[in-house]
Simulated assay, not measured.
Amino acid sequence: MRYAIWITLVSVMAAHAAPGGAQCTLTQPFLASAWPATDFTQCSVDLADVISGGPRRDGIPSIDHPMFASVASSQLGADEPVISLVIDQVARAYPLRILIWHEIVNDRVAGIPVAVTYCPLCNAALVFDRRVAGKTLEFGTTGLLRHSDMIMYDRGGDSWWQQYTGQAIAGAMTGQSLTLVANRLEPFADFAVRHPQGQVLIPNDPNARRYGANPYQGYDQSSRPFLYQGPLPAGVPPMQRVAVAGRTAVAWPDLQRAGVVERDGYRFEWQPGMRSALDTADLRAGRAVGSVQVTRARVLVPHHVTFAFVWHAFNAEEGSD
Rank of each mutant, 00 (worst) to 15 (best):
residue 134 G to L: 12
residue 134 G to D: 11
residue 134 G to M: 09
residue 134 G to S: 12
residue 134 G to Q: 12
residue 135 K to V: 07
residue 135 K to M: 13
residue 136 T to E: 12
residue 136 T to W: 00
residue 136 T to F: 00
residue 136 T to S: 07
residue 137 L to N: 06
residue 137 L to A: 10
residue 137 L to K: 09
residue 137 L to I: 08
residue 137 L to T: 06
residue 137 L to R: 13
residue 137 L to Y: 12
residue 138 E to S: 10
residue 138 E to W: 00
residue 138 E to G: 02
residue 138 E to C: 04
residue 139 F to W: 07
residue 139 F to T: 02
residue 139 F to Q: 04
residue 139 F to G: 03
residue 140 G to R: 01
residue 140 G to F: 02
residue 140 G to S: 06
residue 141 T to H: 12
residue 141 T to A: 06
residue 141 T to F: 06
residue 141 T to M: 14
residue 141 T to Q: 15
residue 141 T to G: 04
residue 142 T to S: 15
residue 142 T to N: 11
residue 142 T to I: 11
residue 142 T to W: 07
residue 142 T to G: 08
residue 142 T to L: 12
residue 143 G to N: 10
residue 144 L to Y: 08
residue 144 L to H: 07
residue 144 L to T: 11
residue 144 L to R: 09
residue 144 L to D: 07
residue 144 L to S: 09
residue 144 L to W: 08
residue 145 L to E: 15
residue 145 L to M: 13
residue 145 L to F: 14
residue 146 R to D: 11
residue 146 R to W: 10
residue 146 R to H: 11
residue 146 R to T: 13
residue 146 R to N: 14
residue 146 R to G: 07
residue 147 H to N: 15
residue 147 H to F: 14
residue 147 H to G: 13
residue 148 S to A: 15
residue 148 S to W: 12
residue 148 S to F: 09
residue 148 S to N: 14
residue 148 S to L: 11
residue 148 S to E: 11
residue 148 S to P: 10
residue 149 D to S: 15
residue 149 D to G: 15
residue 149 D to Q: 12
residue 149 D to N: 15
residue 149 D to Y: 03
residue 150 M to T: 10
residue 150 M to W: 02
residue 150 M to Q: 13
residue 150 M to S: 07
residue 151 I to C: 09
residue 151 I to S: 05
residue 151 I to M: 11
residue 151 I to F: 05
residue 151 I to L: 15
residue 151 I to N: 07
residue 152 M to P: 01
residue 152 M to K: 00
residue 152 M to A: 10
residue 152 M to Q: 06
residue 152 M to R: 00
residue 152 M to L: 15
residue 153 Y to C: 05
residue 153 Y to A: 02
residue 153 Y to E: 02
residue 153 Y to K: 04
residue 154 D to Y: 08
residue 154 D to M: 11
residue 154 D to H: 11
residue 154 D to C: 08
residue 154 D to G: 10
residue 154 D to N: 14
residue 155 R to N: 05
residue 155 R to D: 03
residue 155 R to C: 01
residue 155 R to A: 04
residue 155 R to G: 03
residue 156 G to E: 04
residue 156 G to S: 04
residue 157 G to E: 06
residue 157 G to T: 08
residue 157 G to K: 01
residue 158 D to V: 00
residue 158 D to T: 00
residue 158 D to Y: 05
residue 159 S to L: 03
residue 159 S to H: 05
residue 159 S to V: 03
residue 159 S to Y: 04
residue 160 W to G: 03
residue 160 W to C: 08
residue 160 W to H: 08
residue 160 W to K: 07
residue 160 W to Y: 07
residue 161 W to M: 05
residue 161 W to F: 05
residue 161 W to S: 05
residue 161 W to L: 04
residue 162 Q to D: 08
residue 162 Q to W: 00
residue 162 Q to S: 14
residue 162 Q to I: 00
residue 162 Q to T: 04
residue 163 Q to M: 09
residue 163 Q to G: 01
residue 163 Q to D: 00
residue 163 Q to S: 02
residue 163 Q to N: 05
residue 164 Y to Q: 03
residue 164 Y to G: 00
residue 164 Y to M: 06
